[in-house]
Design a protein around this nucleic acid. Structure first.
Lengths: 193, 193
DNA sequence: GTCTATAATTCGATAGAC
DNA sequence: GTCTATCGAATTATAGAC
């Protein structure tokens, strides 16, 4: 009993430390990218010793993998009325990026680390292309339609959250949905030009 | 006379060396980003001694600045018939990115280096926004329209030239113009939603 | 679990011979 | 102009005391 209680306490404290490390890692990776985000700086942000990071995550690559472990999900977007799928996707994209710092980190790192780029591509391959196949008028164009949707969404994320162009940051969420929604709608459902 | 001949020869050889260095630097910066592209590796690619890079460009930042010195120009796009401005911009974007490796380098580096990000933003600020102001129906929306065009263009560049998503690389140039053109056309000229 | 000390690399940059 | 040698700094990662 005493052992289990002690283990639980240890596990609890360990988990808290891990969570603190991961939060600091996400922030550093998101703002600095993979190379410039040093384990020392992350540990300093988390107010712990750098060696603890190594103890918990083995090496820097393991830390990054843990920091961006989750992947965005496109929930039942297919059940939307077909005429609203574009706006629904735009809204979903906005909500996702406004709150999840790790998506910014994944993008900043994916630009130079093939491993992170592959993680991003998997969302396109496993979720966006199947969605385009179900929704689009011509299933053989699903790859092209999905790629265009990805470029539209990631382009806005790039200018707004990564490069932080003032003109893009200034866009209000409703504006983004109003402009980006019809673009996604056309990419997904318009007849092939 | 002999002196000038010798100087000219030296200058010529020096210019050739500089050009070789810049070509290697562009390639390294484009594929590896700023941090991972080491002076040593660039010098090895150029088949010269690393100290020559320092001699010619002072430091790593100077080398990068020289490697991406040019800036893309949006030529007389405004003289296009207003209904074709979107497709014209898409075609111009494609031609630019297909041949200029330094644009890929600028993007890979701009994601983590504020200095390079500012260089990208200047194109938006000095060329795209004025264009949107001249062409768009409501000049006070020029910032938003230009930001959306930038996101559409840079989004495709990101997925096609930087992340190299197969579905995006597979797009044929004519396909891109057919899909992206109407998007840019709407961002620039459609009434504010 | 936590921290100190340090090994092992790597890189940018400099000095100086030729 | 070109190259060798090297410095100084920063980093990841390990070993081990407590």
């Amino acid at each position: 009993m005493t052992d289990r209680t002690e283990n639980q306490q240890a596990a609890r404290r360990s988990d808290a430390t891990r969570a603190t490390i991961l939060a600091a890692a996400r922030e550093r990776f998101a703002t600095d990218g993979y190379e410039k985000a040093t384990i020392r700086a992350i540990a300093r942000d988390a107010r712990i010793d750098p060696s603890m990071v190594m103890r918990y995550y083995g090496n820097k690559a393991g830390l990054f993998a843990a920091a961006v472990a989750i992947g965005p999900d496109l929930p039942g977007l297919a059940v939307e009325p077909r005429e609203e799928i574009g706006r629904a996707m735009a809204r979903h994209f906005l909500a996702l990026w406004e709150e999840n710092e790790e998506l910014t980190a994944l993008m900043r790192v994916g630009v130079t680390e093939p491993h992170a780029a592959e993680r991003m591509q998997s969302v396109l391959r496993e979720q966006l292309i199947p969605l385009a196949r179900r929704i689009g008028p011509d299933p053989d164009q699903a790859q092209a339609r999905a790629a265009l949707c990805a470029s539209a969404v990631l382009g806005l994320a790039l200018t707004r959250y990564v490069l932080r162009f003032p003109a893009s940051v200034a866009l209000r969420p409703e504006e983004i949905v109003d402009w980006l929604g019809p673009t996604l709608q056309r990419y997904l459902t318009a007849p092939t030009p």
